[in-house]
């Protein structure tokens, strides 16, 4: 598995994308701003109960460019969210357009209420 934080031992700074997270009865919608990330430079994965959003800025800059004012200081975005177990990471749908990622994470489809067994000793 790739170590997306860069070389081991370096603590490369990452940009934290701004997000909106909205929940309704059928699941969660997450919108994240990742300007400068092309579709193939976006990496979205679920590990255990963590949703990980990563992207690499791919700006085309002219040769010899020297920045004099920099508000976006690094090239990587990364943000991690912990999912709860009523959400279904297998059915996450995603759209990515003009630097805006839109994720839909539905609730698990089991309609039946969970039965809680009570053991009487």
């Amino acid at each position: 598995m790739n170590n997306t934080q860069g070389e081991r031992g370096t603590d490369e700074a990452v940009l934290m994308p701004a997000v909106d997270v909205v929940e309704d009865a059928s699941g969660i919608s997450l919108v994240a701003d990742l300007p400068g990330v092309a579709k193939d430079a976006l990496r979205l994965h679920v590990e255990a109960d963590q949703l990980i959003i990563e992207g690499v800025l791919g700006l085309e800059v002219p040769d010899g460019l020297q920045l004099t004012h920099q508000e976006v200081p690094t090239m990587r975005y990364r943000r991690v969210f912990t999912l709860s177990n009523e959400l279904d990471p297998e059915r996450v749908s995603a759209a990515f357009e003009q630097g805006v990622l839109r994720l839909r994470i539905p609730r698990v489809q089991q309609a039946q209420p969970r039965r809680i067994r009570i053991d009487v000793g």
């Binding site: 701003d33 020297q66 920045l67 003009q98 630097g99």
Partner: peptide, 28 residues
């Protein structure tokens, strides 16, 4: 102002031939 908290974030730089401005303005 430095505009650090504002949208869109800006990177500004230059080469001997040009001035280059990058505005990070997603979703427009």
């Amino acid at each position: 102002g430095s505009g650090r908290s504002r949208y869109p974030a800006l990177n500004v730089g230059g080469t001997p031939e040009s001035v280059e401005i990058y505005a990070f303005a997603p979703g427009l």
